[in-house]
């Protein structure tokens, strides 16, 4: 599947839905789209990676950088990895201790919806 990012809003959350592969070739575009959202002042960001077929350390680095930026301005960033190998990679690198991972967009945005 070709790399792509779509952006939508749900309540106070900005939701980025990513598809395809995130590696050295596509990470710059991923970072650019993420920063574009964050630079608008978005405080609550969900990144839905359920449609991502592959991610490497470059992609994980983009996620870490985004988390740092959002949190440094008092915001919240959440990842969605529904039934994907990505969640295992996050656990393997123990980044699940610094990144909040959910299994669906609805559960990730539950706080603000309720």
């Amino acid at each position: 599947m070709e790399f792509g990012v779509s952006i939508a809003s749900r309540g106070q959350w900005e939701i980025l839905t990513v598809t395809g592969e995130i590696d050295m070739a596509t990470a710059p575009r991923f970072r650019q789209r993420l920063l574009a959202v964050i630079s608008t002042g978005a405080q609550n960001v969900v990144i839905d990676l359920s449609g991502v077929d592959f991610i490497d350390s470059t992609g994980l680095g983009v996620l870490m950088g985004a988390a740092k930026r959002v949190r440094s301005s008092g915001g919240d960033i959440r990842l969605v990895m529904a039934g994907s190998r990505l969640a295992e990679l996050i656990e393997l690198t123990r980044l699940d201790r610094v990144l909040d991972v959910f299994d669906s967009v609805s559960s990730a945005t539950q706080d603000s919806d309720s």
């Binding site: 350390s57 680095g61 870490m64 988390a67 690198t93 123990r94 980044l95 610094v98």
Partner: peptide
């Protein structure tokens, strides 16, 4: 830094060889 250290987010690189 260890992954549960919040300062780990300051380092976007460094996972490649580990993986």
């Amino acid at each position: 830094p260890e992954p549960d250290d919040p300062s780990r987010l300051n380092y976007e690189r460094g996972l490649g060889i580990y993986l």
